[in-house]
Design a protein around this nucleic acid. Structure first.
Length: 217
DNA sequence: TGCCAGGCCGGGT
DNA sequence: ACCCGGCATGGC
């Protein structure tokens, strides 16, 4: 019996729907996906608020804006110089390939889009899959540090396995469903933040603490 | 106070 | 194909 469907049901029963991504538009989701790289979401919120206050949350505005000014607006998100450059790289791509129109992007197939995204400097596998799933509503399963930590803590897969190996594990055990992939990744973040932090792990109270012995031998 | 957060790149083995 | 230093703010 596969364990990943069981983990999903357990997490969903425990925490309920997470209703991700916290963002008002696909474009905001994409900006947030870049800004949250190795950064807490609370810091990203401040940066996005700055962009909104300056009415700068659009492809055209960000494409025209000098990198130094963009860096200043997103300062609270950390790594502001490199993230400003990365956002500009994405805007170049979006303007040149899709006329700055996310809806046009959505019409393309997931495989092509993933290849295109991974070619952009500053967009790696996790950011690409986050964009595909949460902005473009494609069935890409997002792997992040919490996912790897939770699975490795429960002896399901070694932490140092590659992104693609983790992703393949999910794809081999789950039906490819956008809504479920959306909730599942958000639930990993939820359980990870609550019980699987590096400094203060609360394994005894984790709702998954018996998942392996009970279902997997 | 030091450690960590929803990664990724570029240069070196 | 890995491995590692760098990137930077805000919260606890």
């Amino acid at each position: 019996m596969h364990i990943l469907p069981k983990i999903y049901h357990r997490l969903y029963q425990t925490f309920g729907p997470q209703n991700w991504w916290p963002g008002d538009s696909p474009f905001e989701v994409i900006v947030g996906a870049v800004l949250t790289q190795n950064t807490s979401w609370s810091n990203v919120e401040k940066a996005i608020e700055n962009l909104k206050n300056h009415k700068a949350l659009s492809a055209h505005i960000l494409h025209e804006m000098p990198a130094e000014k963009l860096a200043d607006l997103i300062r609270p998100a950390g790594y502001f110089n490199i993230k400003a450059a990365r956002l500009k790289y994405f805007m170049d791509f979006l303007m040149n390939s899709y006329s700055g129109n996310i809806e046009k992007m959505k019409k393309n197939d997931m495989k092509s889009l993933r290849e295109q995204l991974l070619q952009i400097n500053g967009i790696g596998p996790e950011t690409a899959d986050s964009i595909l799933l949460y902005a473009l509503e494609k069935p890409a399963f997002v792997i992040d540090a919490y996912t790897k930590r939770v699975l490795s803590e429960h002896g399901i897969m070694d932490y140092d396995k590659s992104y693609d190996e983790f992703q393949e594990l999910f794809l081999s055990q789950l039906k490819r469903d956008v809504k479920m992939f959306n909730e599942y990744h958000a639930l990993f973040v939820k359980v990870g933040k609550s019980y699987c932090k590096r400094r203060k792990p609360l394994c005894d109270e984790c709702p998954l603490n018996d998942i392996r012995t009970k279902h997997n031998g």
